[in-house]
């Protein structure tokens, strides 16, 4: 994109993204929080696209949508008061965490702004999908494999952890007798 186009897309997107991200933690409804997170990360994908990484942007949009929807399902299923109708305050230590977060933000921003970043390396605009494919299947194959294995383990582990009797397979009926949350 051109600089102007980039700017036109970037600024509003950035603003929305930051606001929605903030609201994730302000709202008292977990479902809404999940949806707001989806919005924030989706807009981020849009920013990726604006910053000439189209592949990554679309990928982000794709993955985040699926993930957040699952998250919302999960919350509705398992959490008490997912709608936030009772107005629970889900925060603690608001001031201290805000202070820490603010300090870190300021530090990072200062580094970002004040550093004398080196000039742009002359080259192609952005890597296209083909190049990324070659990268994945070529040079970064080992990393890709490890990432794949990690996913596999995570899947298996997640299923095991989430199973009714836990790892040891002790009595799913027992879990049902205790009663599932969310009734």
């Amino acid at each position: 994109m051109s600089d102007l186009g980039t700017a036109l897309v970037f600024w509003p997107s950035a603003a929305i993204m930051l606001v929605t991200a903030l609201y994730v933690f302000i709202t008292s409804s977990m479902a809404r929080a999940g949806l707001l997170l989806l919005a924030a990360l989706g807009i981020e994908g849009l920013i990726f696209v604006a910053l000439a990484s189209e592949f990554l942007g679309f990928l982000q949009l794709l993955m985040m949508s699926g993930e957040m929807v699952i998250m919302v399902f999960f919350m509705v299923m398992f959490m008490p008061d997912p709608g936030g109708l009772m107005g629970m305050d889900m925060t603690h230590d608001k001031r201290r965490s805000a202070a820490v977060a603010a300090a870190v933000t300021v530090a990072l921003a200062a580094v970002a702004v004040l550093t004398d970043w080196p000039a742009r390396v002359v080259g192609d605009d952005a890597p296209d999908v083909r190049a990324i494919g070659f990268e994945v299947m070529g040079r970064s194959m080992v990393t890709f494999l490890f990432a794949a294995m990690t996913i596999l383990f995570a899947m298996v582990g997640g299923v095991l952890l989430a199973k009714a009797g836990g790892r040891y397979g002790i009595g799913a009926p027992l879990g049902e007798a205790r009663g599932e949350p969310g009734d």
């Binding site: 930051l18 994730v24 805000a98 977060a101």
Partner: peptide, 11 residues
């Protein structure tokens, strides 16, 4: 964005 995320993680 990082700061907001940190605020949430801590708070």
């Amino acid at each position: 964005l990082f700061g907001i995320g940190l605020y949430g993680a801590l708070g």
